[in-house]
Nucleic acid binder design. Sequence first.
DNA 1: ATGGTTGGGGTCCAA
Length: 265
Amino acid sequence: MTLTIATWNINSVRLREPTVLRFLAEHGPDVLCLQETKSPDAVFPHDGFEGAGYVHRVVRGEKGYNGVAILSRVPMLPVAHHDFCGRGDCRHIAAQVDGITVHNFYVPAGGDVPDREKNEKFGHKLDFLAEMRDWFGGGDAPAGPSILVGDLNIAPQEHDVWSHKQLLKVVSHTPIEVEALEAVRASRDWVDVARHFIPLEEKAYSWWSYRSKDWSAADKGRRLDHIWVTPDLRERLSGYDMHRDVRGWEKPSDHAPVVVTLGTT
DNA sequence: ATGGTTGGGGTCCAA
């Protein structure tokens, strides 16, 4: 069987529910991982997704900030989440689908100043990444075939941003963040699915700021949203799509959904 | 070097 898994920072699931439903209707991934749902669990908009056939759902939200959820139309079992940095933030949730553990992450954005001495949020981001590295590198994370998706808030490669030179000191593309993300990737030898399919010298973005009159023409994007798989799934990788057009829908999120397709073994 | 927009909750914070 094939399995399609999508990830999307939705920037308020309640405001964007119709947008998510449209995406599900048009593209129908088996599994959709959402970040920045900004919705407490008690008021998560379950009914619409239930009606669309996504009858399996795990959600972890809080009021106003953060929030992650996984919707699935195929059987899914919850997996214990981990509270990175011990703050009680809703930035990680996990579930098992078809024998594969799916980790859905919302990594802290890190504020504006890339210096942990001057900006606590940047320190939080680096600490969060270090804990991800240690958690996956140690014995506590679930073993076996795994997929890690989410808004990792870092664009690691030169062509993951519109201008490598101009963004070297901008949070999301600084060398210290890129190094920290690479350490997470190396912790389980994760495969970056986007770059498995797209040559390193080709620009690839999943996010465009709201603060631009014409985001598409300016095209000052960054690839902040990622899909990684453990090496045992590499042979099943059969497709990858970045749905840039969705960024142009009415009342859009500033992130576009990205999707991986796994083929039969 | 600056300002630009959006969302949530409530008159400001995070992205």
